[in-house]
Amino acid sequence: MSFRIRAARDEDLQHLYEMAKLTGGGFTNLPPDKPALRAKLERSHAAFAREADSLEDELFVLVLENAETQEVRGTCQIFTQVGQHWPFYSYRVATLTKHSEALRRTFRAEILNLVNDLEGASEVGGLFLHPGERAGGLGLLLARSRYLFIKAHRQRFADRILAELRGVIDEAGGSPFWDGVAGRFFGMSFQEADQFNAIHGNQFIADLMPKHPVYTAMLPENARSVIGLPHPSGRAAMRMLEREGFHYENYVDIFDGGPTMTARTDQVGTIRNARQVRVAELGGDGEPMLVSAGRLEHFRVALGQVRAGDAGDVLLDPACAALLGVDAGDQVTVVERD
């Protein structure tokens, strides 16, 4: 396999833009807008260039590259600490219970509370794999590369991590949740709000969103029915997050009602199970593993064959070593490909 994960570069802008046009809306972290994407790349460059291992408000953009053709076929992003520049809003789904002694009945109402509970957490997001590459484990490579990056730069990330999954979008590109809740207060369609948020941030939410709890019983049925549900194309991503140890804890996205998954950073499966080893020599068959090497802009991840050596070191297949730019005697980080 000739694919590897690496840091995004300026020359990747056109590839990112072409992929952004394929997302189908509701994909805030990858807007089909070149100035916004260029700003992301500039912010990512600054993060890769900073050497100090401390927690700051940063964004790292990684890409999936075919090393043979130099084509970029996927991307993902890691935010080190959300809610530092703009407030990070979520809806928390809660239950309000009341009892009437006169009626001898207990009433339970589901409500949406606007909260900043997840502020300060790290976030994995912006994952998109070109439709032509959705086979052969490349989605897994792209998703789990983020955790290997966190493992290699642990001091630059928070102790809690989240992932927002895109919510249900209808055939016309609209959001039943947006139409039933926020759309009533903003005077704009979901597509307009989504594009504005991707380019300008969500401060307008703070300015216009009602702060009072929203009773879901007052919402249209099509809005209620999608709360906490991922877009059909995101179900596999949700299962992948669950296998890593993420959980849905009743936080949903304020735009489309999609689920927000959370985990303790050190308990994420790939982060917990990855181990650093020395490459004793190149060659030989082995077990399929994810292998990473390097730091910051030199960070790489690829799928490879790894076999245990005699002294706790490993044998690594030459093709993977070439993709990572490593040789015998170098250190790599390996984790089983589940």
Rank of each mutant, 00 (worst) to 15 (best):
A7T: 11
A7Y: 11
E11V: 14
L16S: 05
L22G: 06
T28S: 05
P31S: 14
P32S: 11
R38P: 04
R43L: 10
D53F: 03
D53A: 08
D57C: 05
L62Q: 12
L64R: 03
A67C: 11
V72W: 00
R73F: 03
T75H: 01
Q77I: 00
Q77W: 02
V82A: 01
T106C: 07
R108M: 09
A109N: 14
I111Y: 07
L114D: 08
N116I: 04
N116V: 05
N116G: 07
E119K: 15
G120C: 05
S122P: 07
G125N: 01
G126K: 05
F128K: 11
L140E: 15
Y147S: 04
A152T: 08
H153W: 11
F157Y: 13
A163Y: 02
G173K: 01
S175L: 07
D194A: 13
I199N: 08
G201N: 08
A206F: 13
P210V: 09
T216Y: 07
R224F: 01
P232M: 03
L241W: 00
L241T: 00
F246G: 00
H247V: 03
N250Q: 13
Q267N: 14
I271K: 04
N273G: 00
R278Q: 12
G284P: 04
S292W: 07
Q305M: 15
V306Q: 10
A308H: 13
L316V: 09
G325H: 06
